[in-house]
Nucleic acid binder design. Structure first.
Lengths: 95, 95
DNA sequence: GTTGCATTTAGCGAATACCCTAATTAGTTT
DNA sequence: AAACTAATTAGGGTATTCGCTAAATGCAAC
């Protein structure tokens, strides 16, 4: 949980996560979207992976990074608990 | 927004926020709850304040720190956007 | 096995974060 | 104003983070 928020604390990593929202991407595609060296991006991807915010799978010679929604939801749960969203209120619907 | 997640990235600061959920507290009360020096806690409070996660008001000679829910909700909005905003199909998590 | 492409690891310097103690500011009371 | 309390700022040591370049690894095709 600590690594989760730590991973979220860097703008580049948040941007990577936002990119991944549309679907999995290869490391190179991600690196190409930034004005930084590829190894630097790999470092950020490792941070995201350690926080279990992304998972990886090989696809031939490239490696696909996929967003792990469950980790995002874990952070969400923490913040919702702080703000009171989703409980202690009568607003409740589940469809 | 960057300082928001950065503020959230430290366990002590998250714990402070959790304490403040129940209501405003003086700096000294917060510092007393931790096994760290008071100036260190002041540093964390400053980080929270810069992220606008807390606001302060004087109360005589002490200063009261209050949780600013709107900042929490801002983080919440970011994460909800990533996850698909409350389309929870099943609640199956254990912490 | 060697060449070539995609990606990661290794190693390093600079900047930032974290924690401490000592000194200082701000407000209250006398 | 001086003494007392609450809280912050200043300064410094160490750990961690962030970015880079160069070298290494993994896979696929020849």
């Amino acid at each position: 949980m600590n690594s989760l928020f730590k991973a979220l604390s860097h703008p580049v990593r948040r941007r990577i996560i936002a990119m991944l929202r549309k679907g999995p991407l290869a490391s190179g595609d991600i690196a190409a979207a930034f004005d930084m060296s590829w190894p630097t991006i790999t470092g950020h991807l490792n941070a995201l992976k350690e926080a279990e915010l992304v998972s990886t799978e090989r696809d031939g010679q490239s490696i696909r990074y996929r967003l792990e929604i469950s980790a995002v939801e874990e952070a969400l749960a923490f913040l919702m608990d702080l703000s009171g969203t989703g409980e202690t209120k009568e607003e409740d619907h589940h469809d």
